[in-house]
Amino acid sequence: MTLRSTISAKPQVWATALAIAVAVALLAYVFGRGGYVVTVMGFAVIYGVFVTGLNLFMGYAGQASFGQNAFAALGGYGTAVLCADYGLEPIVALVLSATLSAVIALIVGYPTLRLRGHYLAMATFALGLITYELSIEQSGLTRGFMGFSGIPPLGLGRFQLLSERAQLAVFILIMLLGVWVARRLRGSRFGRALLAIGESEPAANALGIQVFRYKLVAFVIAAVYASVAGSMFAHFVGYISPEVFGLSMVTLSFTMLYVGGIGTLWGPIAGAVLVSFLPQLLRGFRDMQDIIYCLALIVILIFVPKGLASLWSLAVRRSDVPAER
């Protein structure tokens, strides 16, 4: 028993060490090189936060939301308006926007989460469309389709993170916090209940899990992650527009989730980094970017629905199968 667990722990350890080494090397390269690589990494980290939240709701609780971009837009515009127009502290703006996102998630989730499947899918989809339309229409608040510029970088009091490198460093900390929260949730009674719901609602219900309530809470948490990601984006670029939080954000984030491995802790982050850096390799295809993403997503959905994580578990689990079977 002990012998077997030490043997089967080995590949796990090696794979983890390798993953950490790759991450460190990537970060060293990014911070050393500077310039546009920092920008790309910044987007990757922002999306990392976004998809970690989405993963709680989809990967763990097994539910589908096609309108997380709405909450990112709320976070982005909340931060833009509150910081640029009202001079609020970034952290205050971020928390206020996230609170608003949570409230809206409650209002939309309450009637739809009782019903299964497509109703929530479509209601969230509609929510994404609404924020898009409103962000164009309410130009007094959002500056319309021209976009909102002049958003200050992240900071606290008189201290501002003026360089992209410094912002990226803080973003990485925020993302790690996000992953830590997801990890804590995953290993708790709450997380086990979500996993149970994701696998079989009747069975979860029979064990006394209040399916509806747990789904609703997971939806709200995912909305908060999305909102924080939106706020981060606004600070990082200093400019947002309705297009930024448009429909392609939905497919892009799903691509990351599926590339990295839905339902795993680090998979979504790996997916976010990979999918963010990939287009840098295919620079020539600018106009085709969305098409390529979508095509890749479709191929993954059909042929490798578990993403990179299936490679990981191949590496790790090989020797984990008990000898007697």
Binding site: R189, F190, R192, L195, A196, S200, A203, I209
Partner: peptide, 28 residues
Amino acid sequence: VQLFRQRTVEENVQIGFHLATRGGVGAA
């Protein structure tokens, strides 16, 4: 009613403790 087929044997039992335990997001 089925088992949670993709979860481990141990996790299946742990999920069974839901009613016998307490705690939500804050506790987690």
